[in-house]
Amino acid sequence: EREPVTPGPGEHALQFAYTFWFTPRFPGRQASSLNFEQNIKYVGTVASVEQFWAYYSHMGRPGDLTGHSDLHLFKDGVKPMWEDPANKEGGKWIVRLRKGLASRAWENLILAMLGEQFMVGEEICGAVVSVRFQEDIISVWNKTASDQATTSRIRDTLKRVLNLPPNTIMEYKMHLDSLKDNSSF
C-alpha cells in the first residue's frame, strides 16, 4: 500500500490523481493475467499539473521506445488490468496509428484526460499506448461498456483531441471479450 499522493503547496490540483505504469512486453510469451501483473512496473502517481510534468518530462516518449512495450496512465487506485473492479464491466476505444504519430497523439490524449475534457463523469479509467513493431496503438478505457451515450462521447472527444485523419479506424472492445479471447487487440 502506498501513501496517498496530494498536490504540493501552490500546485494546481488535478480532478483525480493518476498513476503511470510501464510494461515491457516479450513477444512470443503468453500473456496470462498472472505474469502480466508480475510484469507491470509502477512508475509514479501524480495529483497536480506540476507533478505530472515532472514525471512526463523525464519519461521516454512512446515514439522513442523500441520493441514491444505499453505505457499506462490510470486513475490512482485502478490497475490497468481487465480484472480490476473498475474495469471488469468496461471496455476501450482502440486507435491504431502508423509509426511516427504516437508521441504527439499520446500527449494530446493524456492532457485531455488529466484536464477532464471528456466530460463523462467518473467513466474514464485510464489510457494506454502500446508500442509495436509495425504500428502503435492508443486506447482509452472506460467503466461501463454498455453505456452507449458515454462511449460515443468518448469516441468523439478522442477524435477531436487526437486530430487524426478522418479515415482513421476506431474500434470499441469490451474487456469481457478480451478476457474470453485472451487477446488485447
Partner: peptide
C-alpha cells in the same frame, strides 16, 4: 461538486512553472 478542468494550453503553460520539479 465542481470539476477541475484544464484546457490543453493551460496545462502546457504550467509546464515550465518553477514548481515543476
Amino acid at each position: 461538486g465542481t470539476r477541475i478542468i484544464y484546457e490543453r494550453h493551460e496545462l502546457l503553460q504550467l509546464r515550465n512553472s518553477p514548481l515543476t520539479r
